[in-house]
Design a binder for these strands. Sequence first.
DNA 1: CAGGCTAAGTTAGACTGACTAACTATGACA
DNA 2: TGTCATAGTTAGTCAGTCTAACTTAGCCTG
Lengths: 138, 138
Amino acid sequence: MTTDELAESLSKELRHLVLLLRRAVAGQPVTSQQYAVLGSLEDGPRRMTELAEEHGVQLPTMTVQINRLEEPGLVARGADPADARVRTVELTDEGRARLVAVRRARIAYLGDRLDALTPAEREAVAAALPALAKLGRP
Amino acid sequence: MTTDELAESLSKELRHLVLLLRRAVAGQPVTSQQYAVLGSLEDGPRRMTELAEEHGVQLPTMTVQINRLEEPGLVARGADPADARVRTVELTDEGRARLVAVRRARIAYLGDRLDALTPAEREAVAAALPALAKLGRP
DNA sequence: CAGGCTAAGTTAGACTGACTAACTATGACA
DNA sequence: TGTCATAGTTAGTCAGTCTAACTTAGCCTG
């Protein structure tokens, strides 16, 4: 298989997998983007700029996201004592609980699909993960 | 690796790959969704309902998408002679040309990334494709 | 063949997610 | 101290998605 054929096939499968995961979170209490943001806060407070960069979006987009998570009390804004321009964001207890719940649902959904594969197929997916990671994070 | 761990890792990598492909078409004359719709029309006319199902969206969403593709002349609506309720959609010459151009850009972008992997890594990705296909199309 | 149910699409209205441009407030440095 | 850079927010726009309600067409049953 040439690299271009591989690229084309991979591109096609990715489209289907994205649709799959979209279905997995349909109806969840947080959207997949909000879930992703909560996930970034799991290890402690982060600054707005960091979050925007990590998620590949502009700062204003992250401002809006955080506003929508702050309103129902899932995250809280704080200040950096060393630099008054910086706003930090951290999970509330409520936000952490929500994160865990949604993660369980997602993992369970994808896990069920993976269970339907043969052990050899799962092995192949696992073996490709490092390459996919390298591919996706330039 | 347990199935759940695999599910979590795969979910994470997919998110990054999606962002990658989104960057690939940023600035292109059609969005990635529009590209996907054009791709569905490559083998001939399709009906609205088919397109909506294939893309995992509701009919009204597809109506809007097709409207936006029809306005600049990339697709054309037709009628089914056997059933007057049915609208068909097909590529125009302009739409086909656009599809080919965008596809080239996507494939080239992803191909460059794949070239940066080791042969063994590309092999691992290729080996995982059938499993990913099975995963993504239940 | 008339009445009523079903199917295919469209329209309207709302929300999320994303962008750029323009603004405020703070820090840094010459 | 004055100017420029940095962090973030606000405002306005657009794509993409949904649900609800509507129109038109086909089908079936009495």
